[in-house]
Nucleic acid binder design. Sequence first.
DNA 1: TGAAAATATGAACAGTGTTCATTATATTTG
DNA 2: CAAATATAATGAACACTGTTCATATTTTCA
Lengths: 203, 203
Amino acid sequence: MGLAERKERDKAELKDTILEAAKSILLKHGIKGLSIRKIANNVEYSPATIYLYFKDKDEIMHELMEMGFKLMNSYMSESISELDPVKRINGIGKAYIKFGLEKKDWYDLMFNSEKPMKHIEKCLEEWDEGMAMFALLAATCKQAIDKLGLQGVNERILALHLWSCVHGLVNLAQTERLEIVEQNNAKELLEKTLDSMMKTIFR
Amino acid sequence: MGLAERKERDKAELKDTILEAAKSILLKHGIKGLSIRKIANNVEYSPATIYLYFKDKDEIMHELMEMGFKLMNSYMSESISELDPVKRINGIGKAYIKFGLEKKDWYDLMFNSEKPMKHIEKCLEEWDEGMAMFALLAATCKQAIDKLGLQGVNERILALHLWSCVHGLVNLAQTERLEIVEQNNAKELLEKTLDSMMKTIFR
DNA sequence: TGAAAATATGAACAGTGTTCATTATATTTG
DNA sequence: CAAATATAATGAACACTGTTCATATTTTCA
């Protein structure tokens, strides 16, 4: 059985190699430059071989997405340990923006590419991750609402409010629509806006 | 000169026909299904002919974008006449969301496709339009700030806050990320969130 | 060593945007 | 009117894209 195991390991290894190649192409050429043929070339296999290890391109993108979520989590992790709910929300928002601006290609892949509905099982897993993230934000919102005595504010709606704010900001920055507001220094503008948002919402 | 004029008119007509074909393909097959060859097929010319009337696909997309902005303006126009600043902002937000949900393909084209930087002149025009829109929102924000006596709030930052909110909401809805928050009825969720946003910000 | 199973690939299909030499049409001039 | 010229349209090609499948190569096992 040792042989069969090594076979399995070899197979998993190549799968990993393909994913690593895909990742490096994503980072080098962006989401638009990511192609099966480039990946195949990179790992020195024929394009057809890729399909022996992945069902299609969507599956590869999906695996990359999970890598992206892990990276994003690492951006958030510091802020999550913050005790004060408002400060925690602020930290999460800052980390979200930082990730969005610094890891444009990852963010593109995770939030601006069409969700591959074909892999329902995989999607549910990912939903879980996203839902857990959102649930955490909502729970923190509840704490903030209680602490500040905000009345008539639903924590899930507030969480969505906050999420759409930072998501919208990152999106507008990435598609270069923010130049309408201010020509240069998107990062500073985003941080300033986040500060103002926090003050306005949790005043 | 009559002949030359008719020639010009004919040329402009074909240009228009091509754009109309592009529009109908956008509405039928979405932004991903919009191709030069489909357009050419639709107007019964060869693909190469398209390039006699437009520099490249970006130029066509850009013209479509302008059509989209006009359509969006028609969604907004009612709300703009509203006198109360907060109500006006609310109306604009509602119209923005309505447009985003009802005209997904247009919205995609206008806000989620890469801005074609090649046509700088054209882009500046469009900037003007967008900047005018944003300036109006910011001016309305100023009125609201004054009326409600909100302190330490910059109107342009507040305008960006509002814009990123609705933009983020529409974006999350379109990329089906809102299912994390609530499985069904995105429209209702968005309106509920907008209401809550307005109450939270202009309380 | 030879049959069977696993793995890899070349070639093709149907698309994409874009270019350019060639052809067809219309206009102007001799 | 016919020939020369200017305008308009196109077929074919290039370099890509994702994906499939019959064929070929390699590895495993009896």
